[in-house]
Design a protein around this nucleic acid. Structure first.
Lengths: 158, 158
DNA sequence: TTTGTTATGTAATAATATAACGCCCGTCAA
DNA sequence: TTGACGGGCGTTATATTATTACATAACAAA
């Protein structure tokens, strides 16, 4: 049934700029008058280092050098980071990914490869059309989830 | 923090045409050479009767007059119904809803009211643009999830 | 310092979903 | 008829994902 592809390396490349992004995040929180605590920073670091979508319990497991964090610690941090626009929740994977946009928009679309697990953040095309379509019935949109599943170029070529 | 709205009646109107839709579903399965078993039919009936998004465990709880069904029974049926295009999974709610389209398309968009819980199925605007945006990087889309959260007209007016 | 607010620690549990295995039942070929 | 096969279901157990509730600690403002 499913695609036979060997590219399931969830060892996605580690972006070398993690320290810079952590510093940016601290600045962003300071500007917003929010506190970038150690639990939040550690959580953000783990999401960044994953280099792609990561599950909450993988963050929980990696949180401490020896032994896991407690779930509420990490879920609270993930919620905070999402509110700050530093990460996005991917609904169809029950996973989280670092925001790839410079302006940390709260709404983004994703291309999700069913083969290798990688995600690509894209601008949602025609947000105005979606809002217009909704508005025609009096519906006021506050957040759009758009996730396209399929195969990335590398995985299609096998 | 959240919207103060009293319209949380998850007792959405019961569509009176449930029997007709069950019969249509049986015909559709027969045409496709698939078996519409009693577990599948009962599951579909409960999703139809919900009149809106329903959780898997609510189906499980209501499955038998006395006592719940076992989870695998219902999850299997939900998967089947989804494959047949009779229902849709709503990722951001972890819920299921009957397909509202006559042709049982497998891809649909949803407007989801955060206040009253109702959903409206819409055609995803500009699917071609999404596929083009993806295709520009060689990504081949197989399924699109599009869910807009917000407030429906009735709930906005309070 | 007192006070109010926000964040964290901790234990327990809720909610969502799947794995694994055996049985039943229908189909179909021999 | 009968046996082999395959799909669907029953059952138990367990995996995965997420939250509640309440106590404590850290911080900021008065």
């Amino acid at each position: 049934m499913s695609h036979a592809c060997a590219h399931h390396d969830h060892d996605h490349h580690r972006p070398a700029d993690t320290p810079a992004r952590l510093a940016e995040a601290e600045a962003l929180c300071a500007d917003a008058g929010e506190r970038m605590t150690s639990a939040r920073l550690r959580t953000y670091e783990l999401v960044l280092d994953a280099g792609g979508p990561i599950k909450a319990y993988d963050v929980i497991d990696r949180f401490h050098p020896d032994g896991a964090a407690k779930p509420p610690t990490v879920y609270r941090a993930l919620s905070f980071l999402e509110q700050m626009g530093l990460i996005h929740r991917i609904e169809s994977l029950n996973a989280f990914v670092a925001c790839g946009a410079h302006d940390h928009k709260h709404t983004a679309g994703f291309l999700l490869c069913d083969c290798c697990g990688r995600s690509v953040e894209i601008a949602i095309p025609n947000v105005a059309d979606i809002e217009a379509s909704a508005g025609a019935t009096g519906f006021k949109v506050s957040h759009i989830t758009m996730e396209a599943r399929g195969l990335c170029q590398a995985c299609s070529q096998e």
